[in-house]
Design a protein around this nucleic acid. Structure first.
Length: 595
DNA sequence: ATAGGGTTAG
């Protein structure tokens, strides 16, 4: 005789736990089976006290499976009228599972049913508005939700305030975010983090740093959220010294153990050119998540450590992490930097097996990969096959390929389509012009430059900078602004003689005829990166790599010259241009002259 | 206990 089954009410907890497991796995058939069982036997009312608990997990389950209709039906199965808690449950299920439109719809229905908004439902609604910030038809203006919230008894609640503040920040409305922050009667670490994150996303790095500093001064107990945000700012702006200071501080508070802080540190050191240090952070990380795997994978990709990148991809899967769309973006970048077309195609089709829909960014990476090995027709065919309107980045990648392979006809097509996207990129005009020039079509080149002027687009100034002792030294071509300019030009001249002795010949083919006067000046030899390296030779201690950043792509001649420079001086130069890293040592570059 | 806010990786 089997022991008698316990009464169903006693099983409610186990059933709830089972639903949580099924939710996590998004196991749709099994979950629906369980739902059916509960409904069919009339079991739900039988366990009325656990009814709401089970319903909550059912809602989360269907939201995870992106099935708002089923979610709503499970909600409507609740004994009427649903209490405010059930509504909050419904709204948060949608908001937390990428269904902002459904979340807002539920919020609206709740209000229509006469249930007032609470301190539980407003934050979820704010999250939904924030998540829909990029969509063309936002469900509700941020101001409207803020207004609604301020008419409730929760207007001064710190949870509600922080959620509304974050909504403003995510919608790019930094002025309102800041005003709310200033007016809040109570602030906590979440309010501070939301504001810092908002400034960081908007590229307002000084503001983000300033708020962070104020938080420290006001003795706010910053946590891993806050620190990861501020390290991201340092990474984006390549503020190595400041980033290292924040890192040191985070070690003291043990926040460096957070995988979120770890990811941003990996990215910081990688972006500052110190990929070995990035690798060490990763190896030492006590806890790994998908973010830190992607961060280290991207570091390998950016630094041209292609084989390492592929290995990391295998390892992360062995560790049980499921790659996401960013993982594949990193892999395609790695392939692109090594010119590995077959591997790239393999990863691109592998996305399907993971049911990850390629985004425009993945297409841009594939176009870049095909283009830089000269398969321009194939790249154009891929663009034609895109299920979405090709954005600027895709045409830009094609245009770059046309420039490399002097394909003026395709360049004209790419540029035309690129400008149709509403882009005001000066780089695109310059690429088109120089492609014409490289193909010997100097009249078209001049016309392209005129078109740029007529469009009121100014050429982006080539800038290089070098950070040393916490100070950032910025250079433009041939400038003499730096107080140590005389020494810089002297040392470059001296090294230049050695370089010529070693066989360096300045390549003047990059000097395009029929270009405007200002560009001719720039082509004469002292490109900004060389000046920055010159200063590096003077002030960076022997044995320490000279790290230089540049906002444009390094030219062939400078690339060649820096190889000779590294050989003649015995120095390591790490140059980050707008595409990737180049590590020059003993006459060779890590990119293998393919970039 | 079934409901609430902020991260990382491109």
């Amino acid at each position: 005789m089997p022991p008698p089954l316990p009464p169903l009410a006693a099983c409610a907890r186990s059933l709830a736990e089972l639903l949580v497991v099924l939710s996590a796995a998004r196991a749709l058939p099994k979950g629906q089976q369980l739902h059916g069982f509960l409904l069919k036997g009339g079991h739900l009312p039988a366990i009325a006290s656990s009814h709401a608990l089970l319903s909550h997990h059912l809602l989360t389950f269907y939201a995870r499976c992106a099935l708002p209709e089923l979610c709503l039906r499970a909600f409507l199965d609740l004994p009427a009228p649903p209490p405010a808690a059930a509504w909050s449950s419904l709204i948060s299920s949608f908001a937390q599972n990428g269904l902002p439109a459904a979340a807002f719809d539920a919020f609206r229905r709740m209000l229509a049913a006469g249930v007032p908004a609470t301190d539980r439902s407003i934050p979820s609604a704010a999250k939904a508005v924030a998540a829909a910030a990029d969509s063309l038809r936002p469900p509700l203006a941020p101001h409207a939700l803020h207004g609604l919230a301020s008419k409730t008894p929760f207007a001064e609640d710190v949870f509600v305030g922080s959620a509304v503040l974050d909504m403003y920040a995510k919608c790019g409305n930094l002025l309102d975010a800041r005003r709310l922050f200033d007016e809040m009667p109570e602030r906590n670490v979440v309010s501070w983090s939301a504001l810092i994150g908002g400034y960081a996303d908007a590229g307002m790095h000084p503001a983000a740093l300033w708020i962070f500093r104020s938080a420290l001064e006001e003795a706010v107990e910053v946590n891993d959220f806050t620190v990861s945000c501020i390290v991201r700012v340092c990474a984006t702006a390549t503020l190595f010294d400041l980033g290292a200071q924040v890192h040191a501080r985070s070690i003291k508070t043990a926040l460096d153990a957070s995988p979120f802080v770890g990811s941003s540190l990996v990215s910081l050191y990688s972006k500052c050119g110190l990929v070995d240090r990035a690798y060490r952070i990763f190896s030492a990380a006590p806890e790994r998540n998908l973010g830190i795997w992607n961060a280290v994978l991207n570091a390998s990709a950016q630094h041209g450590h292609t084989a390492t990148a592929f290995e990391r991809f295998m390892e992360m899967q062995n560790d049980g992490f499921r790659p996401n769309y960013i993982t594949f973006l990193c892999l395609l970048t790695a392939c692109s930097h090594a010119g590995l077309v077959d591997e790239g195609k393999r990863y691109f089709s592998l996305m399907k097996e993971y049911t990850i829909e390629p985004q425009a960014e993945h297409y841009a990476a594939m176009v870049d990969l095909l283009g830089r090995v000269g398969r321009i027709t194939e790249a154009l065919e891929l663009i034609e096959s895109m299920p979405m309107e090709p954005p600027e980045s895709v045409w830009g990648a094609l245009l770059m390929a046309c420039r490399m392979f002097k394909d003026a006809d395709t360049a004209a097509i790419a540029a035309k389509r690129l400008f149709q996207t509403g882009s005001r990129s000066s780089g695109a005009h310059m690429l088109l012009s120089s492609t014409y020039a490289a193909a010997g079509r100097h009249v078209d080149a001049a016309l392209a430059r005129k078109a740029m002027r007529d469009a009121g687009v100014r050429k982006e100034t080539g800038l290089s900078w070098l950070e040393a002792a916490g100070e950032v030294h910025t250079f433009v071509s041939n400038c003499r602004r730096h107080p140590r300019s005389d020494e810089i030009y002297n040392v470059l001249e001296k090294v230049g003689e050695k370089m010529e002795g070693a066989g360096y010949v300045a390549d003047t083919s990059a000097v395009v005829k029929d270009v405007a006067r200002e560009e001719k000046c720039e082509t004469l030899g002292y490109h900004s990166e060389r000046l920055a390296i010159g200063l590096g030779l003077l002030i960076v201690p022997e044995g320490v790599p000279i790290r230089v950043m540049k906002n444009l792509r390094v030219c062939d001649d400078c690339h060649n010259a820096i190889k000779y420079l590294s050989k003649c001086t015995g120095r390591v130069v790490i140059l980050r241009d707008n595409r990737r890293f180049h590590r020059f040592e003993d006459g060779l570059c890590s990119c293998g002259d393919f970039w």
